[in-house]
């Protein structure tokens, strides 16, 4: 289980990285944490001519807190994000999801951006990125561009990132909730073992007007039920419109599970996924709602 022979560069600037990718003429592959890429390389399922290692791009090592967003650079480790006070304070949903990824040692090396960009439909972070309307910052031969999720995701392990482009960061919008509004998030996952990819995972982030007991903003999504993570606009609307939100959690979950059309595979049947999706959506809504009142992971 050894990779094909490949060349290797470790550029010190973004420009050099992009040049290296361009020189590889589509046969280049970016490696950051390598926790998904490494196995694929070792099994020769990915066969690059050139590996472009971005781990020396020091400018991409930071979590930057802005007024309206948090920017996570391409070599920020998942473990680093997990321990970040900025992430805990501003991105409660990301903070909730990070511990579900693999194990400590894979999070020590794996990056947030790498997971978002790898687009595994059973991974946690693409779902978080979707729910938070994240933006991928991309540098390529033609210059800089941005891609918003969900447009970024095209299908199973497939994005609109070109082979000669480099994702340098992901920006997670994180505007402060208005006064009197509490932002609370919950993440739930069914995996055969802890640390495995999700069979189904659900995410919810609710901005709750605590005094009025109303949801003013809702993000509800699922992973593991399609080739890309999914968000559910109708469910989010129903939550915003609900006079007493907990009363609609069950029907929202039911609607969501009716809306999806999952596949059967080795790990689960379609019917199982549909059923578990309903259960997990219901659970994350309840948990997020309770947290909004407990003030547990809101700002």
């Amino acid at each position: 289980m050894k990779p094909v022979d490949f060349g290797y560069v470790r550029p010190l600037t973004i420009a050099d990285a992009v040049t290296a990718l361009a020189c590889a003429q589509g046969e280049g592959k970016v490696i950051a944490g390598g926790q998904s890429l490494g196995p694929l390389l070792n099994m020769r399922l990915v066969r690059p001519a050139l590996l472009v290692d971005v781990n020396a791009l020091a400018e991409l090592a930071a979590i930057e807190e802005g007024e309206l967003e948090v920017r996570i650079g391409a070599i920020v480790r998942q473990r680093g994000a997990e321990r970040s006070a900025v992430v805990a304070g501003r991105l409660p949903l990301l903070a909730e999801a990070l511990p579900y990824i693999g194990h400590v040692q894979t999070r020590n090396r794996g990056t947030v951006v790498g997971s978002v960009v790898h687009a595994d439909p059973s991974a946690e972070l693409p779902l978080v990125a979707l729910c938070l309307d994240a933006i991928v910052e991309i540098v390529g031969p033609a210059g800089n561009r941005e891609a918003s999720i969900p447009d970024f995701y095209e299908g199973y392990l497939s994005t609109d990132l070109a082979p000669d482009e480099l994702a340098v960061a992901v920006r997670f919008p994180a505007p402060a909730p208005p006064s009197g509004i509490v932002r609370a998030a919950a993440f739930a996952e069914m995996a055969r073992r802890e640390g495995d990819f999700a069979i189904v995972a659900a995410a919810a982030q609710l901005d709750v007007d605590v005094a009025a007991r109303r949801v003013v903003d809702a993000r509800v999504g699922l992973t593991g039920v399609a080739g890309v993570p999914l968000r559910f606009a109708a469910a989010e609307t129903a939550l915003r419109n609900a006079a007493e939100p907990p009363r609609v959690f069950a029907s929202v979950a039911e609607t969501v599970s009716d809306e999806i059309d999952p596949d059967s595979d080795l790990h689960a049947t379609a019917a199982y996924r549909r059923s578990v999706a309903r259960v997990l959506v219901s659970r994350v809504l309840e948990r997020a709602w309770l947290r909004a009142f407990a003030g547990e992971n809101g700002p």
């Binding site: 289980m1 290797y8 390598g34 926790q35 890429l37 490494g38 196995p39 390389l41 070792n42 099994m43 590996l51 473990r79 194990h103 400590v104 040692q105 894979t106 020590n108 090396r109």
Partner: peptide
């Protein structure tokens, strides 16, 4: 050799990682 079992764990700059999927 695909990053699951942890037998190859070493510390890289003080941090435990899987050395089968680091080159």
């Amino acid at each position: 050799e695909h990053g699951i079992c942890g037998a190859c764990t070493v510390m890289l700059d003080g941090v435990p990682i899987r050395s089968c999927i680091v080159y």
